[in-house]
Structure formats: structure tokens, C-alpha cells
Design a protein around this nucleic acid. Structure first.
Lengths: 344, 344
DNA sequence: TATATTTGCTTAAACGTTTAAGCAAATATA
DNA sequence: TATATTTGCTTAAACGTTTAAGCAAATATA
């Protein structure tokens, strides 16, 4: 059907009666090629509609110009925004990204890693699945010498670059806010301790309670996978206590939403009877009734920084650099679910 | 640092004292290689931890084993689910996908197409941006002989494979449902007519009104870009009418959400004063108050079908096949926002 | 037994680049 | 003017596969 052969560097060389090597150098702006030749090459390339064969140059140079991105899921605003910003930065530098979703599954994550390694990506930017405890596959990436950058869900033991927000401080900001609203029994529906960010949020919660001289009650500290369903369950669990909390800080917006549904169903006034705070600032926190107070995770900044760190590695691969650990300040977005003043 | 050279087909050949060609054939299960040799090759490949060089085989065979996917955005459940299902099907066949987001921008979409063509993808699966009217870039894909499959946001003029739901019928189902709820003045906040799916929904709406002997009022038919913001605006516009509608059918869930926010703010009872129906069955339709009736778009099925159609092309590229146009039945999920019975 | 076919490999070239090494002509330096 | 350096290219090999063509040995066929 379409038998138009693609134009190659050779075709350009033939037109100008120079060697393909000269063409290649001209296109790469090599200083040892004359301006005159460069201009001619560029002109002919344009005329013949030359498109460089990415596979050939990748093979020869050993660089695929592809970066793998692994996220637990893309249908969360946080991850999709991070991805978009990674893409924006990397596209400008001639890189493309391959996105894979782990769906929070350890097995799927391992498959993704194998797939990306097979595709010869030049680097991997990842946020770990909830399930992941065994770091073997991540060590595999490191051992191949491929730059690995983690964001949000990281892991100290891996000893790689990391970009995230200050989870420990976020808990402090939240507790302080709730205390200022007059709350005295603050519960925490947290993530699993084995994930660093959730562990930090839990520790921040515990320390902030101490700081404000509030008692730490084991009944009020619950670990969960932070899905909507578990948010509902754990909220019910809290409501069944003899001594109910007057505030609940949930370590994820989806679980916070589940908790809110239960509170609404039980006709419990939010924030007056129980104040509610989520984490992540997903768009729906601003859509439900009442709107949910949450922590902005700076997804744009995280995406951009992750891309920059990768580029740094890509540009000087030889020098063993010291690790980049970038911790961004979190920002509390106060909304109806915790702001009693709007109800006075 | 990491100087371990990668093992190649040559290394395997050396160990077994056969030619690299024989190794390649053995790994591809060529019928002209003895079982004995195949077994030996597979064993040595395993021992040496051989990973085929995807770039080399892609260059030689002219196939990159990459498929490009273009979506308006990934942070909608519909698109992220479609993508996930495309990925699942294609991964099994050894393909990887490169996801790009157009952000509903025509320019970004064109860039994406160029990027994907540059990366030498073997095919492109796309859903068009709202802004896109000029089809030049899509024609470019076709003219290069690269399989192009559209889903959801398609375009008749392009004459390519398409997978989507029956938008015309969906409008009929919605109008029928609203009529059964006693609604007599049904408004439609639609998408732009130049996008085929929205045009079909509008035509379905018009024809369904006729069928049920309801008058068609120009004031009640509005085109929009279906963002939350425009959902709010257009709803306000409808509320400012002397003769308000008693039902609003919005062609997208996000705009429906915006409309609902306005209705809630204005203390208008939903569904009793005004019934509301969205489109897309985004998860948040089941989270807000009242829960929004919507159309399930069968994202899983659409993703899988799109992948299958691509594979069909990839497998027999020579034969000019007739086009696949797969139109799936839509399904109405009735919730509180339109179900007056639950309020009686 | 003579010829034809099949089996199981090898040889060599190719995919389209990039890059190290080298060389002649032009220019700079002493 | 003689030598050194720079400029602007060319040559040839390489990246790791795949594949068309071919060939000897083994097997089938007449």
C-alpha cells in the first residue's frame, strides 16, 4: 500500500555527496563540521522529510531515551498529576515515558519492573505498591546500574533518590489545627507502618499528641489499606467505641471519603460532633458534602523534581553522586469538615 | 561501577559452539532447529541470564513492540480503566504501551502524535481531545501505514477502526427514564456537536423527546466543554430561565457534578424539583449527595476490544481488512439524583 | 541403488545509526 | 620557510539482532 521508503541519513548523504557520518555529525551540531555543510544537511533533511530512526540510534548509543514510571494507579489525581509533570519535563529533553500501574499489587509491580528492564528504559521513577515489602526487584534495578528515583511511597533501606512531602510534619500541622478547633480525642486511621510515609504520619501523630498534652489511646490508632471500603469499616469501628473520638485524621482521602459516608449515614454532624481530615487533596475532597479538609501533596513539584533528578543522572552517569532526598513542605487545605467556625 | 557486560546471543552461541543465527532461531522456536539444540540454548540462556535486546530486534525486524495510547487525561476513571485493560491484553502479546495525555488540547495532541511516530510505535490507540477538529495529524498516522484505532471520542470522517458505546441509544434510555419519573421539561447540557459522540447524544436527545411527544425547547439544549466549571455555569443559565426545566441530562459526569453543586447551593431539591442525570459513571457519582444517576460506558470492554483490534492488524498487516466499528450497549445506573420513588 | 527431499545447521548481509581513528588541506606559529 | 595545529571531512567498524540463501548430512522415495 504505502511503499514510500523512509529517508535515512544515507539518502541525505547521497544528495550532498558526503558521507553518512558527516550527516550524522551535522545533525548533532558537531563542531568539526562546517556551518555551510550543516545548513545544507538540515535543508535536505527537511526536504526529504527525514525522521531519525530512534531505534537505530538507541541501539548504537545504548540509550533508549525511554523512562519507565511505575505508579500504584493512574486514576488518582495525585499520581496522574505527578506523571503529567514528569512527562512535561522529560519530553523537552527528548525522553518519552512508559507508564505502568501496579494496582497496589506486589506481583504486578514485579512484572512491571521486568517489562521496563526488557524495554531497556534509561531510568525508572516509581512509587511503591502498598503490598510491597520485599525489595528484591528494586535491588535488581539498582544492580543493573539503571537510575532509580522513588517518590511518595519510598523506602529508606533502598538507598536511592527520593522526592516526597514531609509526612511527619503534616501530622503535626493537622493535629495542631484540630486542637485549635477544640478537639480533644483525635483518632488516626493510618496506612500500614511498613510503608515509610504512613509510618512517618503515625509517628508525627503520636508526637503531636504528646506535644499538645493529649493522651494517646491505642483504640484511636488504626492501621488500614486506606481504600474507601476500609475507611467505612474503620470509621464504624471508631463509632462503636464507648468513648468516641471528636476528630478523625485519615491518612488518605479515599478512606476519608468512606469515613465521611458512614458519618453522614449515621447522621453524625461533621465537624461539630466529629471533625474529619483527609490526606492528598484529591479533587473530590472539594466536591462532597461537607468538603473535606486535606493535605496538599504538591504533585506538580514532586513530578518535576523527580524528572530533574533523573536527568541529572542521565547527564553524568559516571560520577557517583550523593543521593537526592527532597522533602517538600506540606500544606493544609482547611475545609468544612474540620472548620467549626463556619458553623457557629 | 557495574561493568558486567550483558549477555548476547553470541555468548550463548560460543558456549554451545553453534552460530548466533542458530541461537536466534532456537529462541524463536524455529521448526528447522532440533529439539536437542533448542533445549540446550534455552538452558544456557537461563544460566547466563540472557535478556534479549529489544532495540536490536526492533531495528532489524522493523517492529518496536510499542503501542502508543493518547487520551485526553488519565485522571478520569473511564480513561484509566480503558488504559489498564489495553495494557493487560497487549502485555500478554509482548507489547508495551506508551501513554500520553492531550489535556484536551489540540496542540498537545499533535505533539503526542509526533512523539509517538518518532518512537516508532507499531500502532496508536487514541481518544480525541475536545478541541480537535482538524484531522491532519491523524491522517498523518494513517498515511504512514500505522494502525490507528479510536475509542470513545472518534470521528467518522477518518474512516478508521472505532470502539465506543451507543450514544444515540443512551440518550433514549435516559429520556425514557426521566419521562417515567414524570419529568416533562428535560434539558440537555451537551458536549460540542463537532465531536461525534456528543453530536449523537444530542440527536438521541432530540429524537427521544419527539418520540415521547415532548416539545423541543432551544433554551434547554446547551453545548459546553463539560468541565465542572461549565457544568456550574450552564446550570445557572438554566435556572435563570422563566420556565425552568424539571430535569437536566448532562453529557458528562464532571459537568453534572458542577450542576449538582449549584443545585445544592441554591437549595433546589434533587430529584424532586429538578432531576439530574450524568454520563460516564465516574466513581464520584456514587460518592456525592445525592448520588448521581449515570451511564456506564463499559471501559473494560472498550479497552480490551481496542487492544484486540490492534493485534488483529499487527498479525496480518498485508491484508487490507474491513474496518471494525464496535458499538457497545450503554447501561443506565439509576441513583438518587433522578429516582423520585426513593423520596416518596 | 540413484535421485529427491528434508533436516539442521552456517554464512553473510542487513536494519540505521554513532563513533574512534585517520587523513588531506587549510591555517597558524615559530 | 618549515613545522605544528586546526578544520572538515572519510573510512570502517560496531550496537545485537534477524533472515535470505545455501550447503552437507540424513532420510525418504522410486
Amino acid at each position: 500500500m504505502n511503499t514510500k521508503k523512509k529517508t535515512t541519513i544515507k539518502d541525505i548523504a547521497n544528495v550532498l555527496n558526503i558521507s553518512p557520518a558527516a550527516v550524522s555529525k551535522a545533525l548533532h551540531n558537531d563542531s568539526r563540521i562546517s556551518e555551510k555543510t550543516k545548513k545544507a544537511v538540515r535543508q535536505v533533511a527537511k526536504n526529504l522529510n527525514y525522521q531519525p530512526n530512534h531505534l537505530a540510534s538507541a541501539l548504537r548509543s545504548g540509550k533508549s531515551k525511554l523512562v519507565g514510571v511505575i505508579v500504584p494507579r493512574t486514576n488518582s489525581n495525585f499520581f496522574s498529576s505527578v506523571i503529567q509533570n514528569i512527562e512535561e519535563v522529560l519530553n523537552k529533553e527528548g525522553y518519552n515515558i512508559i507508564i505502568t500501574q501496579s494496582n497496589e499489587s506486589y506481583k504486578k509491580e514485579c512484572d512491571s519492573i521486568d517489562t521496563l528492564l526488557f524495554t531497556q528504559v534509561d531510568g525508572i521513577i516509581a512509587s511503591m505498591a502498598n503490598e510491597t515489602i520485599d525489595l528484591f526487584y528494586y535491588e535488581k534495578i539498582k544492580s543493573k546500574g539503571i537510575p532509580l528515583i522513588l517518590f511518595d511511597r519510598g523506602e529508606n533501606d533502598l538507598n536511592v533518590d527520593y522526592i516526597g512531602i514531609n509526612d511527619y510534619d503534616s501530622s503535626h500541622v493537622i493535629v495542631k489545627h484540630l486542637v485549635s478547633q477544640g478537639c480533644k480525642r483525635i483518632a488516626h486511621i493510618g496506612g500500614f507502618k511498613h510503608t515509610r510515609i504512613y509510618n512517618n504520619r503515625i509517628n508525627g501523630y503520636i508526637d503531636a499528641l504528646k506535644k499538645h498534652h493529649l493522651p494517646l489511646d491505642d483504640e484511636l490508632l488504626i492501621e488500614s489499606n486506606l481504600t474507601i471500603e476500609e475507611g467505612r469499616e474503620k470509621m464504624k469501628q471508631l463509632l462503636s467505641l464507648k468513648n468516641r473520638p471528636d476528630a478523625v485524621y485519615v491518612a488518605g482521602d479515599y478512606a476519608a471519603l468512606g469515613a465521611l459516608q458512614v458519618l453522614n449515614e449515621e447522621k453524625i454532624s461533621v465537624p461539630n460532633e466529629i471533625a474529619l481530615v483527609g490526606f492528598g487533596n484529591e479533587p473530590f475532597t472539594d466536591m462532597v458534602t461537607p468538603r473535606i479538609t486535606s493535605i496538599n501533596q504538591h504533585s506538580e513539584e514532586i513530578g518535576k523534581q523527580a524528572a530533574f533528578v533523573f536527568l541529572k543522572h542521565a547527564k553524568n552517569s559516571i560520577i557517583k553522586q550523593k543521593l537526592d532526598k527532597k522533602i517538600l513542605d506540606a500544606e493544609l487545605i482547611i475545609r468544612d469538615s474540620s472548620n467549626k467556625k463556619t458553623f457557629l
